[in-house]
Write a protein that binds this DNA or RNA. Structure first.
Length: 559
DNA sequence: CGATCCGGCGCC
DNA sequence: AAAGGGCGCCGGATCG
């Protein structure tokens, strides 16, 4: 059993430590400390406790700045959010102060508003100049809320799974803070070269680069007008209407079906315009400092348990821009991508024996195709994606019928989740993360469509189907996120004490930056972490979760 | 004028 | 060929 220590910061460098027994009851006196990072560091050198703290997002970056890394923690705030969700009380305040107020029957304070994204170097001092608020809850509140959380976890449907969820979520907060501090290696010169290659020379006054100006001229000429703002959907619609093409919108797949000389130009313009605005020079000057891209990762920010980022758009780096992600001299990236993660998770959680047998192979889609789709891999993939996303039309329909017939248990799993959502119920992931409730009124009779009060309301029917698609996807996406964050937590432990650093995590993909000589060991550690995550979540399932591994100097070269 | 919504598209 | 889950971010349009 691990040593447990509750730790509360006074936000002036000091704080209070309180040793706890396994049930969360205080062991002896609380110990005030003047230099919190030093004390935490000392304990990490000796008994490596599990730290119980209010919020890793709030406390851990301070410790990291002081050079202190901790091994494990229990994050009260993230746990509170999971438990509130489990109880169907999504959206109630989750901070320690709120949890303590609920426990004592006091008025529940709202959570502090989320901070806005601040690029490195901009507005940084404001964080430290902020006037401290009223004193927060004390160490007693922390330990009592922790003990209460242990009790609430113990009465969930599967406490063992929920404990794993809490541990992975807490570890995720550690990884997120560490990854934000480490940053993703980023070569400004390579980025510039990519931009110049795609966009041409930048305009000296900060206006659009040469290639965009050219394209804008060609587009206007193709429409026979003087000027069109191709980045304005409204103007594009008008321009197409003038040449006799009525469009519902200007999405790329709609445009691709139109036979007009402006179309390829507009498509290229959109693509380049996006790179220029979202990942051009201005973006880099805001987010890349000292050769590192440092976004702020926010674990648990997505309802399904996926991470989000605050600023920087780290989870949407276009493939062409990844050319700028280059390892330090003598170092490498170990890039690991869990292929076909979501269908494999469905195979594991649904308990469909025949489907799991397909998941035991290296290519689940191909195995499915051999087993039930006459060898047509593309059709098997289409059916599976359709089942997980709730597709109802198009070419997927007959394929879906094959899937339903051949794998009734797996198919029934996502169907049941959809039905639950459509009838106003809540669904849970494998480890117990609960989906948020639908919009108010769904599933009861409170909603009236003002247009057609008498008949079936199309907008309401649409909303119900949409809710079904959401809950259908939730049970798979959220469970996949759990597998991935468990891998991340295990891998973090494996890399502790080495020079290797986690520098990127994107849903089902992880990047470790390490000295070239250690790349082999790191790759083995990632493989081991994947196997361990599978065992922790699913026991001895036949389903495999293979990782595509590459050791590269440049992210763009990863397969 | 700023705040917010929306269309569109990048990633998974 | 057709259109279905989760996000963040951009610029333009619109609201107050």
């Amino acid at each position: 059993m691990f040593v447990l220590v509750a730790v509360l910061s006074d936000e002036r460098g000091g704080g209070v430590l309180q040793p706890l027994d396994p049930a969360g009851a205080p062991l002896g006196r609380a110990e005030p400390v003047v230099n919190l990072p030093a004390v935490v560091a000392a304990r990490e050198r000796t008994d490596k406790p599990r730290w119980v703290w209010a919020s890793g997002a709030a406390l851990y970056p301070t410790l990291l700045r002081a050079g202190v890394v901790v091994q494990r923690c229990h994050d009260v705030e993230l746990t509170e959010a999971l438990l509130l969700g489990y109880a169907g009380r999504w959206g109630e305040p989750r901070a320690l102060a709120a949890a303590w107020a609920r426990l004592t029957g006091a008025p529940v304070p709202a959570d502090p508003p989320p901070r806005v994204a601040t690029p490195p170097g901009a507005g940084q001092t404001a964080l430290f100049d902020a006037v401290p608020g009223p004193p927060g809850p004390g160490i007693t509140a922390l330990t009592r809320v922790y003990a209460d959380q242990l009790c609430r976890v113990a009465i969930t449907g599967d406490p063992g799974r929920f404990r794993l969820l809490v541990a992975a979520e807490s570890a995720g907060a550690l990884v997120a803070a560490e990854m934000g501090a480490a940053g993703l290696p980023w070569r400004a010169d390579v980025h510039d070269a990519v931009l110049a290659d795609l966009l041409g020379e930048p305009s000296p006054v900060g206006g659009p680069p040469r290639r965009l100006v050219e394209l804008a001229g060609l587009i206007a000429a193709a429409f026979g007008v003087r000027q069109v703002h191709a980045d304005s959907p409204a103007e594009l619609l008008k321009a197409f209407a003038r040449v006799g093409v009525e469009l519902p919108n200007t999405r790329a797949w709609v445009l691709r079906a139109v036979d007009h000389p402006a179309v390829p130009l507009v498509l290229e313009y959109k693509e380049l315009y996006r790179i220029w605005t979202a990942h051009g020079r201005a973006w880099r000057e805001a987010w890349v400092r000292d050769g590192r891209f440092r976004p702020e990762y926010v674990p648990g920010a997505v309802v399904s348990g996926r991470w989000a980022t605050r600023g920087g758009g780290a989870l949407q780096i276009p493939k062409v821009i990844r050319r700028a992600v280059v390892a330090d001299p003598g170092w490498r990236f170990v890039v690991a991508d869990a292929g076909q993660l979501e269908p494999r998770v469905l195979a594991a959680v649904s308990g469909d024996v025949r489907f799991a047998a397909a998941g035991a192979t290296g290519d689940l889609y191909a195995a499915l195709a051999r087993d039930a789709f006459g060898g047509d891999r593309a059709r098997a993939k289409l059916a599976l994606l359709g089942a997980m996303y709730g597709q109802t039309g198009g070419a997927a329909v007959p394929a879906l019928a094959v899937l339903r017939r051949s794998y009734p248990t797996a198919f029934g799993y996502v169907e049941a989740a959809a039905r639950t959502g459509e009838t106003g119920g809540l669904v849970r992931s494998w480890l117990g993360r609960t989906c948020p409730p639908g919009t108010a009124g769904l599933g009861d009779d409170g909603q009236v469509d003002p247009d057609e009060p008498g008949e079936v309301q199309p907008s309401r029917a649409r909303a119900i189907r949409s809710r079904g698609r959401f809950t259908r996807n939730f049970v798979v996406q959220a469970s996949a996120a759990e597998w991935a964050s468990t891998l991340l937590a295990v891998l973090r432990g494996e890399l502790a004490g080495t020079r290797a650093e986690l520098v990127f995590f994107q849903h089902d993909e992880v990047i470790v930056h390490c000295p070239a000589a250690q790349a082999g060991q790191v790759a083995e550690a990632v493989e081991w972490a994947g196997r361990r995550a599978t065992a922790l979540l699913f026991g001895d399932t036949p389903v495999r979760f293979p990782l595509d591994l590459s050791v590269v100097e440049c992210y763009a070269d990863a397969t």
